[in-house]
Amino acid sequence: MPRARVLIRPKAGILDPQGQAVERALPQLGFTGAANVHVGRLIELDVEDIAEVAGMCERLLANPLIEEYEVIELASASAGEPSA
C-alpha cells in the first residue's frame, strides 16, 4: 500500500504568526542566519490509491482558501516506519 506524505503550508501572502514567532526566537539562540520561516503541518497516511490524496486535501486535510498542499509518495509502507 503506498504511503503518502502531505505537506501543508500557509498560503503565500497570508500572515503566518507561528513562522514569525520561530523566526524571532532563533536569533536568541545564536542562529542569526535564518529568514523566511514558515510553519505548516505534516500528515502521513497509507492509501490504496495515491491519486485520491489530492481530493482528501481539497475536502479535509487542507483548507485551500488559506493553505497550499503538496503530496509526496513515499516508499511503500512496511510494518515499521517508512523510509523517505
Binding site: I14, L15, P17, Q18, N63, L65, I66
Partner: peptide
C-alpha cells in the same frame, strides 16, 4: 476562513 490571532 478564520486564522490564528497574530499574538498566537
Amino acid at each position: 476562513a478564520l486564522l490564528p490571532n497574530p499574538s498566537l
